[in-house]
Design a binder for these strands. Structure first.
Lengths: 95, 95
DNA sequence: TTGCTTTATCGTTTATTGACGATTAACGAT
DNA sequence: ATCGTTAATCGTCAATAAACGATAAAGCAA
């Protein structure tokens, strides 16, 4: 069983996903499994600084973390946090 | 199978849950099943207008709808939309 | 060292949130 | 017709988000 999660953290996670671009970034990180970095910027029609800002929000929610890899940064999904989200949502609304 | 959901709507749903108070309101509506109205205001240390604003966001996401019941308004969870959220989240990160 | 790539951060601007009190509208009772 | 209750909306204000360009820091290559 996943460790329980408080409503404050939950709200932060939901807020991290409250933008289409961030949802797409998370989906991409999930399918790529391995990390990513500058490639994410090239996936979207936004500036590097804007994407960096979105990544920062995802990081602050705990859903994602970044590791410095030479001159670049690799982003990964924190599966523990993702599973906390999944567990909570699955339990919502009974059965 | 639930009808699929586009990322824009999804982001709106996540945004609706991006605040602790709105998460608690949804949880309450789920457990009460039947509708609610002014009672919701009395559950929180916020003014009537603030709660009304939160309910408006929940309504706009589709998660919740309100029916005028005499002088009051009864709020209910739209289970179809809730299930769309649950289906999407469950599928995230493919087990 | 000098340069190139990558990414985080700063400063700015506009738009949206979150909270409030006050007002308005609708209904039921008296 | 007047009053009390309920709830939505308006206006305000401070804080945060969303986007951008510009700058800075860190690492690799030459």
């Amino acid at each position: 069983m996943e460790s329980t999660i408080d409503v404050e953290h939950l709200a932060k996670i939901f807020k991290a996903l409250a933008h289409p671009t961030r949802i797409k970034i998370l989906e991409h990180l999930i399918t790529i499994d391995s990390c990513i970095c500058n490639d994410i910027v090239n996936l979207f029609p936004f500036s590097q600084s804007t994407i960096s800002q979105h990544l920062k929000l995802l990081k602050e929610s705990g859903l994602v973390y970044g590791e410095i890899e030479g001159p670049a940064t690799c982003y990964c999904v924190d599966k523990t946090v993702l599973n906390q989200l999944k567990t909570y949502t699955a339990q919502l609304g009974g059965e």
